[in-house]
Nucleic acid binder design. Structure first.
Lengths: 211, 211
DNA sequence: TTGGGGATCCCCCTAAATGGGGATATTCCT
DNA sequence: AGGAATATCCCCATTTAGGGGGATCCCCAA
């Protein structure tokens, strides 16, 4: 249903009601036209291929494939894609990695509704859009050491409450190795124990609670 | 802005953009009229007092005071209040306690957008509205023991990653007592260790991550 | 008033987690 | 080829967590 001279938008969010709300919100604007919806990252990639929208409004956390992964994939195939990430605030890590993945902008769900349209316009014009309160931090930060992929893997598994032995079995490595990773995790994150590692990881957006 | 013969609605959600979306969605319906918004439970109570809307569309998880607490409070003051809870699926416990608190209905954010209107109508007419897939379970359940206030307190403090000794100092009790509470928590929640207790507690909405 | 639940405290014991020191192989980058 | 980073494994030691018993005390409701 794309009309001439309107900006076509693909909405990606796992909450159907939120999608309906966003669509209603954008459809009140003459310049924007919601041409498609997707409920997870995988479907977002498929829909992008079919629809080639001018903009993608993408939620961060979704089942199956999250916003970051979908963004990375879409941008790999279509470097000119314009993607605006929409998310609850989860820590700078999440914003940072979204931008790394190729998103052009980032808007918090709890920022005023009026902020959405300027952000969409900016991204459409190829500009970056980052919440003011974060922009500064993003520049002069990062004394925090980055976790390796494997360490993130271990950290994510910690949320299950498994012991080191159980983790070792599930990961098919020895308990020694699990402990080695964990030691590195605790050191890098500057936390005292696995419980704090999990809660800090959740707050920073490094890991998430299972569905 | 309430017109004659329309149903006035108060929207409560901590995400401004979601509120804007819901408002846009409801305003496309002739019969509904969004007369107010609130961003947390406290403001919801205040707004309810001022506006006396026909319906409240209330998000479950919010800072300051969550949907359950606000619902309990509003229903205590106004037993005739019609409140529809809107939330991500978080386990039956959350639904159950919402209904106990006085909500007339419960809708998942990831159910189709079309489900919202019938739910609002049902609640407006004084009927209950519960997601089909949950209704059956709610009847024959509840083997989960409830945590005491003190236990919830301990559980919440676990997210800091403190050791039992540190918790004891901060709570000004002995480590023995902390361990006693913890033992009870682990037993009631049927989890194996403090880390799992924290993640399960977060998922059930019993506790939350600090801001 | 008698009971029960909750909060507090105590002991003992085993299993688990943590912190220190290592070693080796692979992969990737220069 | 050389070097860095990563993942994997191992030893040691101490601290902590968790499970099993308990015991008071207090308050509130039957």
């Amino acid at each position: 249903m794309k009309k001439k001279n309107t900006i076509s938008i693909l909405i990606v969010d796992d909450h159907s009601i939120v999608r309906a709300g966003l669509k209603a919100l954008l459809d009140t604007e003459e310049d924007f036209c919601v041409v498609g919806e997707a409920e997870n990252g995988l479907k977002a990639i498929q829909s992008y291929e079919c629809l080639r929208p001018d903009l993608v409004l993408m939620d961060q956390r979704m089942p199956v494939k999250d916003g970051r992964e979908a963004t990375r994939e879409i941008c790999r195939l279509h470097p000119a894609a314009r993607i605006l990430m929409l998310s609850t605030y989860q820590g700078d890590e999440e914003i940072n990695s979204s931008l790394e993945a190729g998103a052009m902008g980032y808007v918090f769900k709890n920022s005023p509704g009026e902020d959405l349209l300027p952000a969409l316009w900016a991204v459409f014009k190829g500009e970056h859009w980052i919440p003011r309160e974060v922009g500064s931090r993003l520049a002069g930060r990062s004394t925090l050491e980055k976790l390796t992929d494997r360490e993130v893997d271990v950290l994510q598994r910690l949320v299950s409450g498994d012991s080191n032995k159980e983790l070792a079995d599930k990961m098919e490595i020895t308990e020694h190795t699990v402990k080695a990773h964990l030691k590195s995790i605790l050191g890098k994150m500057q936390v005292r124990d696995r419980t704090e590692a999990v809660t800090v990881g959740l707050r920073r957006g490094i890991i998430r609670l299972p569905e």
